Simulated assay, not measured.
Amino acid sequence: MDQELPLRIILKNPPKGVDFGLQKGSGSHYETVQKQQFDSQDLEFNFTVRVKGNQGTDTQPTLLGPFVQGPPNARFVYLDIGTCAGQIASVWSRRLKIPLLGISWEMVNQLLKNDGQVLETQVPGTGKDNGPTCGTVKPFTGWQTK
């Protein structure tokens, strides 16, 4: 199977005045896309990943593409924050790691059968220090079909 799968990250109530963006690429060869700042609505990042694998032999689908980071058994997506997102004057220089764990063959099949559906996760935008959430999202509530 080699299919495109739509995903959406909702960043809930992040701090105002800070740039957030989806990281495309890895290492020092990346760009930040879909840059935005919180105004009065939660931030939304939409992208696709490529699903590869064989449902008969692979317990989980393998997710690939320019937004996907990490080894096959621990894939994730980064949101770049502040200077990491290209906001030069920001006091923040962070990234938020959003796991792709829990995306199952059942979810993939449901999305492929129902055009217009997306896998969505909602993550907090503000951390305990009242700055942008960073590091790996904890607790991570997972992905749901919407």
Rank of each mutant, 00 (worst) to 15 (best):
K24I: 04
A85T: 04
G25Q: 11
K146R: 14
K35R: 14
T83C: 14
K24W: 07
C84I: 02
N130D: 14
K146I: 07
L11N: 02
V33R: 05
V49Q: 02
P132L: 11
Q36A: 05
G21Y: 04
Q36P: 05
H29L: 14
L11S: 02
L63F: 06
L11T: 04
R75M: 03
R95L: 14
G25H: 01
L7I: 02
D115H: 11
L79K: 04
P66C: 14
G116E: 00
K97Q: 09
Q23W: 07
V108M: 03
Q23M: 14
S93V: 03
D58W: 11
L119C: 07
Q69T: 07
R75V: 15
V68G: 01
L11G: 00
T145S: 08
V118M: 04
K146G: 04
L119D: 00
K97W: 06
D80T: 06
D2H: 02
Q23I: 14
W143Q: 03
K113S: 02
G70S: 08
M1H: 06
D80V: 10
F45Q: 04
D58E: 15
D2E: 05
G82H: 01
K52R: 15
Y30C: 13
D58T: 12
L79I: 10
Q117Y: 11
E106N: 08
D129I: 01
G25F: 02
D80N: 15
G142T: 01
G27V: 12
A89N: 12
D19P: 12
T121I: 04
E4K: 05
G65V: 08
L100E: 03
N109R: 06
P124T: 03
D115W: 04
G17H: 05
F67H: 09
L101D: 07
D39G: 14
Q144V: 08
P139C: 08
K16T: 15
S26N: 10
N73Y: 09
L101V: 00
T48G: 09
N46R: 06
V108Q: 03
M1L: 09
W143H: 00
P99F: 04
F45E: 15
V68S: 08
R50C: 12
V137G: 12
K113M: 06
V123Y: 00
Q144Y: 10
T141S: 12
N114K: 11
N114V: 10
D2V: 00
R50N: 15
F45P: 02
G27D: 13
Y78S: 12
P139Y: 09
R94P: 01
T62N: 03
T141E: 11
K97I: 05
R75H: 08
V91A: 11
D58P: 05
I88P: 00
L111C: 05
G53Q: 09
Q3I: 14
C134G: 11
I81D: 07
G125P: 06
K12E: 09
P99T: 02
P61Y: 05
R95D: 14
V118H: 00
P124H: 08
R50G: 12
F67N: 01
Q87S: 08
D39S: 15
